[in-house]
Design a protein around this nucleic acid. Structure first.
Lengths: 297, 297
DNA sequence: TTAATAGTGTCTTTGAGACACTATTAC
DNA sequence: GTAATAGTGTCTCAAAGACACTATTAA
């Protein structure tokens, strides 16, 4: 036991007879070599019933010219959360929040895991704390309306149902089939290869995010974070989000009942009107469930 | 686009006309202030049908004399995984592996998440990558047989069913009820308070680990990593692990059928004999499922 | 025999999924 | 009316949970 005793003021003394204040004054973290810490962010959106991920083209070494996840160094005076929020705001102009689905608040993000292999970055010892962000496409399109970015684009994550395919899609434009083709294993994710086509280990990070997203949509309210208008949506719109994320068709009838059992009976949504479109009008709902991460199953 | 062109050798040149090699030669990560990175580890075991966590008493400032999670600084030439393995081996003499349940291999660990609030460590900017480790108690007891550690102890995580309680338990000795008392909320975890009784934000980390463990035992093979003898165990022994982890009694009959449906029918276990004890002999099984993380539900 | 522990049978309820069917609008 | 979309009913199957019951040993 290295507690030597106490001062008259009740401060603990360590094995060298120092108070905490004295210890901290003489303590120097940088005496040991330190790594750098970055945050990387897998930003998902759903556009035209299609799950897409935001990639940026690297404008400097290393991996110059390669597509990569958006991200950057964590400031010494900010948390990883603050760094992610800052990066997203710089990139899209949108202020995201963690988990909260308050009125006015938009989007969702959470930490995935930390990637820390020694050789993952040729610049040196860099540890990356990876995150996943969900943003509604409309908000995003509004926020970045004037931008003409050649160095950032949305990529489709799925194509058909036999492949997960990252095909370059210019925002609102034509697909021009390139970049990455990823065969799917039996479980849809395990045997992906070609992930090394992204810069660094960003292919691994993307797979990690995709797995988390698909799993979590199944037992939480995450899908609501991808709705263009969570304050006024139809069950069919929500179903399209599920279909885009899982890559599988959802039976409309069964989805209807799932919605009622899970979200309506759970008090997470309220009815706010009806549509007036071709076909039978649909009931409109508002999401007022708070935390998107709420576990519903 | 900041790709200027290519050298005769096909090397990309950046906006300053540098090759990657030239760029890296002049690049200095330490030009920006860098944080330090630690790994912390929530080590669980089950002893006497009781879920316990390993805590160490801090022998230096800050939080001198407080109980804390085992952990330490990540070396500049090791990954977080390697750091965790090194720390566990230093602490217990056991070489753990990630996820694999090979014959001879023992224990399991995985990353939880990274804790990076700015003020979390008074020594300065320190980011902690938290992990969870599962070890069978018997292996542990053998490995640390000669140790007489006053600065490390196993704490019960549950007491009765109304409280989660961290009561100091000396290895194989008497409980002497102290330290931390944590009231449980409706879901058993949410409203825990008093977590600040541990050093740093280790209370938060512990709660994070406990939630992950309870959830994951329900849909994976993690429980097998806590068996003293996974190469020869009875269904009742496995049920006791589940009961210790979840804190709830499992119906023996229903557990029996779950075991058959999930693990036996899934080919993850094989029968290796019978016990000869008081009462009806029990069938003995061997876990040969490989990855403890295998999702079975 | 009894005590002790292992293991099965059976009944109810719940939810997932397939799919036929009805409802309400625009035109 | 038809086309289009929204929503309901019904059937089957699988699994969870409660709990009574049978099975096999030691002493």
């Amino acid at each position: 036991m290295a507690l030597l005793g106490y001062t008259a003021d009740g401060d603990a003394l360590d094995m060298h007879g120092r108070t905490e204040e004295e210890f901290l004054a003489s303590y120097d973290l940088s005496a040991y070599p330190q790594p750098s810490v970055t945050v990387d962010n897998v930003v998902f959106t759903v556009c035209d019933d299609d799950l897409r991920v935001l990639l940026v083209r690297r404008g400097g070494h290393p991996f110059l010219g390669c597509w990569a996840l958006p991200g950057g160094f964590m400031g010494i005076d900010e948390s990883t959360d603050e760094a992610v929020q800052r990066e997203v705001e710089e990139e899209t102009g949108i202020r995201i929040s963690q988990g909260i689905g308050e009125p006015g608040q938009v989007g969702f993000y959470e930490q995935l895991r930390t990637f820390a292999d020694v050789g993952r970055d040729p610049r040196g010892r860099i540890v990356s704390v990876a995150h996943m962000t969900l943003l509604p496409y409309r908000t995003l399109a509004e926020a970045t309306a004037g931008d003409d970015a050649d160095d950032a684009a949305w990529f489709s994550v799925r194509q058909g149902d036999a492949f997960v395919d990252l095909t370059r899609v210019v925002a609102d434009g034509e697909a021009d089939g390139e970049v990455i083709r990823i065969p799917r294993g039996d479980d849809g994710l395990a045997e992906m290869v070609g992930a090394e086509s992204l810069a660094f280990d960003h292919g691994d990070i993307l797979l990690c995010a995709l797995g988390r997203l698909v799993a979590k949509v199944g037992y939480s309210c995450l899908a609501f974070a991808l709705l263009d208008t969570p304050e006024e949506f139809t069950i069919t719109e929500l179903r399209h989000i599920y279909e885009a994320v899982t890559g599988e068709r959802q039976d409309p009838g069964n989805f209807q009942r799932m919605f009622k059992r899970t979200f309506w009976a759970g008090g997470l949504v309220s009815e706010v009107g009806q549509t007036r479109t071709e076909g039978r009008p649909a009931r409109l709902y508002r999401y007022d469930g708070g935390l998107y991460e709420t576990i519903v199953r």
